Simulated assay, not measured.
Amino acid sequence: MARRQDKPQRAGAETSLGRGIDILVALGSQDATANGGLGVVGIAKRVGREKSQVSRALKTLARYGLVDRDAETLVYRLGWRLFTLAAQAGHQRLLEEAPPVLQELVARFGETAHLSVLDDGEVLTLMSELSPSAVHASDWSGRRTPVHCTASGRALLLDHGENAVAQMFPAERLPICGPRSPSNIAELWRRILAARKVGFALADEEFESGLVSVAAPVRDFRGQIVAALNVSGPKFRFGSELQARGVVVEQAAEGLSRRLGWAFERTAPRGASGRAGNACTD
Rank of each mutant, 00 (worst) to 15 (best):
M1F: 05
L256V: 03
E187T: 14
E254R: 10
D282R: 04
L193D: 13
R191I: 05
V41K: 13
E72F: 10
V218Q: 00
T112E: 09
A11T: 03
G110S: 09
D139E: 15
E208P: 04
S128C: 12
I43V: 14
G223Y: 10
G48Y: 06
G255F: 00
R245F: 01
L211C: 11
V117K: 01
G39Q: 06
R237I: 05
D139K: 15
L95R: 08
T150R: 01
N230V: 03
L260D: 00
Q9C: 04
E205K: 11
V41L: 13
R143P: 05
L74Q: 12
A276T: 04
K7R: 14
F264E: 01
A32W: 15
M127K: 13
L66D: 09
V106L: 07
W140D: 14
V101C: 07
D119Y: 00
A201M: 07
D220E: 07
S52P: 01
S209H: 13
A194G: 06
T145P: 04
V117D: 02
S257G: 10
I192Y: 00
N184Y: 10
R56V: 10
P182F: 11
P170H: 09
C149R: 11
M127D: 05
Y76N: 14
E241F: 09
A216P: 03
W80S: 14
S213H: 01
P146D: 02
V54S: 10
V249L: 00
N184E: 15
L58D: 12
I23D: 08
Y64T: 14
V40E: 14
H160C: 01
G142W: 07
R144Q: 11
G20V: 10
A252D: 02
F200R: 02
L27W: 13
H114G: 08
L157N: 04
K235T: 07
R191S: 09
R108P: 01
G142N: 06
H160K: 03
H136L: 05
N278S: 09
L158R: 01
H136R: 15
E250R: 11
R93N: 03
N184F: 07
I23Q: 10
E241V: 04
Q53V: 15
A276P: 00
A276K: 02
Q224Y: 01
T267E: 09
A244N: 12
A215P: 04
A134Y: 08
Q30N: 13
F200E: 04
V101D: 05
I225C: 02
